[in-house]
Amino acid sequence: MPYIKLESHLPGITGLLEYSKDTAQPIRDLTQVLLRGPSSLSEAERELIATVVSHGNQCVFCTTAHTAAADLLAGESETAACVKTDIETAPVSEKMKALLTIAKQTRESGKSVTEDSITRAKVAGATDIEIHDTVLIAALFCLYNRYVDGLGTSLPENEEYYGVLADRIVYHGYTRLPQGYDHLKGNNR
């Protein structure tokens, strides 16, 4: 049971974003720019950053949702599964290993990001903008994970919910659906 009264057909983050639309707007805008805006990092790579941070924060809803989005974007599920277990042996580029390590350190604390990790990323070809975006995506998911778990939001009753959600954030993005979410009543619990 969530700690505050949320709409029961909207588990995880969506119930919160609908509960407080004034605060949802800038959060949605920031996410859309960072994860879907123009970038030299692919959308799948940016979803992996979100996945690693949510996994580290043990946020089941966000981890499952962003794993599903990363899988859908990549067309396979091995990469996301591997980065959650061990970044160094995962089938990603050296640059992505370095950026995912920075994300992992940011998750612990801003002060945990080391000079060595930054140097490694730069040597592997990461630009200043890519490093900036990695830190801010990791920081944003530290917000999301705490928001979702700090208010005790519920998990979907049906695992298929995540497939529908991944489809929405891949093909529609992070902006609010123009028609709202009433169509989810009854069939996605």
């Binding site: 801003g110 830190v135 801010l136």
Partner: peptide
């Protein structure tokens, strides 16, 4: 915000 400021 804190992670953004200190992480960089």
């Amino acid at each position: 915000f804190n992670r953004y400021v200190d992480g960089l």
